[in-house]
């Protein structure tokens, strides 16, 4: 199988998002105004030699996708940690990724079915990603702060 390319990571992410139902995606408002958003994803890729059976032979695994451009104002932050402060795409993608790591580690520890990308070291009593697995961040637009700057040069 050909080695992983940047485009294959982007394609796998956008394909995964495209398959989702409409609910939660930008729409066209009643007054005709179309909505846009930003998408970010964290994908893991496997080294050439080990397109594992656990991932159906694919080398690119989109782990977590986030879309969004909103944050809670400081006055609305919750004392009980029960709402998400920052709902920007990149932040949701990372938090979803951490949730996935927690889930996979729990499965590994319990001996349940898992994706084969997380390992447990009984000696150090720590988990890690499997060797050779790489992490990719994709952001559909220049991160906040960068784009405005380039355009205002």
């Amino acid at each position: 199988m050909a080695s992983v390319t940047a485009e294959s990571v982007v394609e796998a992410t956008l394909k995964s998002y495209a398959a989702l139902p409409k609910h939660g995606k930008p729409s066209v408002r009643d007054n005709g105004v179309p909505e846009w958003t930003i998408l970010a994803s964290i994908s893991l890729t496997l080294p050439d030699a080990c397109s594992s059976t656990a991932t159906n032979g694919t080398q690119v695994v989109p782990i977590s996708i986030g879309t969004g451009v909103k944050v809670l104002p400081a006055a609305r932050l919750p004392p009980l940690g029960d709402t998400v402060h920052d709902c920007h795409a990149e932040v949701l993608a990372r938090r979803g990724f951490v949730r996935w790591l927690l889930d996979q580690a729990t499965r590994v520890a319990r001996g349940e079915e898992h994706a084969g990308l997380v390992l447990w070291d009984a000696e150090t009593k720590r988990f890690s990603l499997a060797p050779g697995v790489q992490a990719w961040l994709y952001v559909s637009a220049l991160p906040v702060g960068v784009a405005q700057h380039v355009l205002s040069c």
Partner: peptide
């Protein structure tokens, strides 16, 4: 206009989660 809705999809955890105002 910007969408007011955010979304988190983690294929390994099941359905996507739609997030509004956190």
């Amino acid at each position: 206009s910007t969408s007011t809705v955010s979304l988190s999809f983690v294929p390994g955890l099941g359905k996507a989660e739609v997030i509004i105002n956190g």
